[in-house]
Nucleic acid binder design. Structure first.
Length: 552
RNA sequence: GGCCCCGUCGUCUAGCCUGGCCCAGGACACCAGGUUUUCAUCCUGGUAACGCGGGUUCGAAUCCCGCCGGGGUCACCA
């Protein structure tokens, strides 16, 4: 049997979309599990929209997820050209495409077409008027020789002459799908600028790179017969195809990069007082963005606006999830389950759905990929992430936390040293679903003692009420604080316990007023870590403040 | 609109190919209890689905047909 070779071929027009990540993951998992190879190719034939930075970003996103490629651009410790089938940027493969263009022209299966975009627009409009789909065909009196001659001096595109027969696609996921000839047009394979179109480049590159399994989103299904027809024309052996079901938003719409703009646009409109200065772009750009749903603002500007408007951007790209503080392992596990499942049960008879990469690699196959599009359920992703966070050792957690902070919250690193974070870790891990939310349960650490606002209900219940009242208990405990040694979670807990025992009160009676003093509310992590993290001086200051502020 | 794909709890799904083990199982969410110095974690339990209509069959979530619904695609983008 030949070595299976899969490939992921993103176009570098932005960050890696979560759907693309799943495609890449399945490709990589299949290659690993079958001892094959996984190729990464950058499809940058669209000169206008592609960028070097986007390509680098995608490689970075993949590597962060732990999806490494065997053949492809060398970056992040992945890639290389061991099989000598590169380069892996389509823009650098022009000479290869030219060879194939020539072959098709010789065969009379590719021909120059001179219609201008305007003319084509007219033709489409006319077809639409008749309620028909516009299908481009070579005109009946087309003269190949003179067209070729004319092509030497005139701008033109190259079209593929679609053979007059239906095409059957055998899909690993969907099964047999038949496309009638009447639906297949003479597609453009070389653009006016000389670059191949996507359709042509994939066919050539997949063949040149020995790809055996073409795995991609279902939105490509309708393209497949064109590709198959070209393969046949070129005498290329056809690979197997696997079209993955789409991923939707919870509301059923397709998960799109533009959703982020959509969210911010709506918030801007609702706020009513946002200007181009807030957006950080020119007035013209801002107006265009507001009016045109297809116009996107740069990521950084979008984040800035979202912060200003206090709206949460929907996570769409891998980078968005990373920023939100999800662990790559959680994302990988969750997206693997979108459209696929191992179909195995654990010893208790429950379906297995929590697993790691080695398990995925071993089990993944296309026969268990579903056909139905799935909605992206953030709550479930959060549950996966939370479980992973809870299961981490404190050291690993702090490592992950600090790494995240280096990228997204350097301020936290300035406030907390590693040792303090380590002490806080167990408390935080029980309370933070994502890394970005890790600072929430310890928010009291960042408050200024003199500006703590005391929650009315908490004060009424825990400070004023009781006999003796919480305030009185706190007052009598206050002198003890200075003598707590060591001032560590254990030392503090011990001191608290012995004080309560000798005073013959329940721990809760004292604990709650202390919480109010420390945080202004009745909620905090266990008192030991809460006080230890604050430090003796701050603890005393906060107790004093409550006593002086609320003792009436 | 043409063509193509899809349709099991709110969501992700198991089961469908090889009809009975399914008055449909799991997970997330939700609800109710319990443990706990608060919150959280944790534990226990519960609500909840085969889109509709015809067939075939002793028997259908599973096979067939129709309908309805959702989605994709119709570029010199990928």
């Amino acid at each position: 049997m030949t070595t299976p070779i899969t490939r992921f071929a993103p176009s570098p027009t932005g960050h890696l979309h979560i759907g693309g990540a799943r495609t890449a993951l399945f490709c990589a998992a299949y290659a690993r599990g079958q001892s094959g190879r996984f190729v990464l190719r950058i499809e940058d034939t669209d000169q206008k929209r592609s960028s070097e930075a986007a390509a680098a970003g995608i490689l970075d996103d993949l590597a962060w997820l732990g999806i490494c490629w065997d053949d492809g651009p060398e970056a992040q410790g992945c890639g290389g050209d061991d099989r000598n089938v590169g380069p892996y940027y389509q823009s650098k493969r022009r000479d290869i495409y030219d060879r194939y263009f020539d072959r098709l022209i010789q065969l009379g299966l590719a021909y120059p077409a001179f219609d201008t975009p305007e003319e084509l627009g007219e033709m489409r409009k006319a077809a639409e008027k008749e309620k028909k789909t516009f299908i481009y065909r070579q005109c009946a009196d087309y003269d190949h020789a003179s067209a070729l001659e004319r092509a030497n001096s005139e701008e033109h595109v190259l079209r593929f002459k679609m053979p007059a027969e239906a095409v059957t696609v055998d899909d690993e996921v969907l099964g047999k799908v038949v496309f009638p000839y009447e639906e297949l047009d003479d597609l453009v394979i070389r653009k006016r600028d000389g670059f191949p179109t996507y359709h042509f480049a994939v066919v050539v590159d997949d063949h040149e790179m020995g790809v055996t399994h073409v795995v991609r989103g279902q939105e490509h299904l309708n393209n497949t017969p064109r590709h198959v027809a070209m393969m046949k024309a070129l005498g290329i052996e056809r690979p197997s195809f696997a079209h993955l079901p789409l991923i939707f938003n919870p509301d059923g719409s397709k998960m799109s990069k533009r959703d982020k703009d959509k969210t911010v646009r709506a918030a801007v409109k609702a706020a009513g007082n946002i200007s181009e200065t807030d957006a950080g772009v020119t007035a013209g750009e801002f107006a265009r963005w507001q009016k045109d749903k297809t116009v996107q603002l740069p990521q950084q500007n979008l984040i800035g606006l979202a912060d200003k408007l206090d709206v949460v951007l929907p996570e769409i790209d891998v980078e968005d999830f990373r920023r939100s503080g999800y662990l790559p392992e959680a994302i990988v596990n969750y997206i693997a389950l979108l459209g696929w499942n191992p179909g195995e049960r654990d010893s208790e008879g429950n379906e297995i759905e929590r697993f790691d990469r080695p398990y995925l690699n071993e089990k993944f196959a296309f026969d268990r990929v579903g056909k139905k599009a799935s909605k992206f359920d953030r709550e479930k992703l959060r549950a996966f992430n939370f479980d992973l966070i809870k299961a981490m050792g404190p050291g690993d957690f702090v490592d992950a936390w600090r790494t995240w902070c280096e990228r997204y919250d350097t301020g936290l690193l300035e406030t907390l040293d590693r040792e303090t974070m380590l002490m806080l870790a167990p408390a935080v891990q029980q309370r933070a679903v994502t890394l970005s939310e890790a600072r929430v349960p310890i928010g009291f650490l960042f408050a200024d003692t003199d500006s703590i606002e005391y929650d009315e209900k908490a004060v009424a219940k825990h400070v004023n009420k009781g006999e003796p009242s919480g305030l009185e208990l706190l007052k009598s405990f206050a002198p003890e604080i200075a003598g707590i040694d060591p001032f560590t979670p254990d030392g503090i807990e011990a001191s608290l316990a012995s004080f309560c025992e000798s005073s013959n009160i329940k721990l809760g009676k004292l604990a709650q007023p202390i919480r109010v003093a420390m945080t202004g509310s009745a909620v905090s992590p266990p008192l030991g870590v809460t006080l230890a993290a604050l430090g003796k001086d701050t603890v005393q200051a906060r107790v004093t403040r409550l006593l002086t502020t609320l003792d009436t």
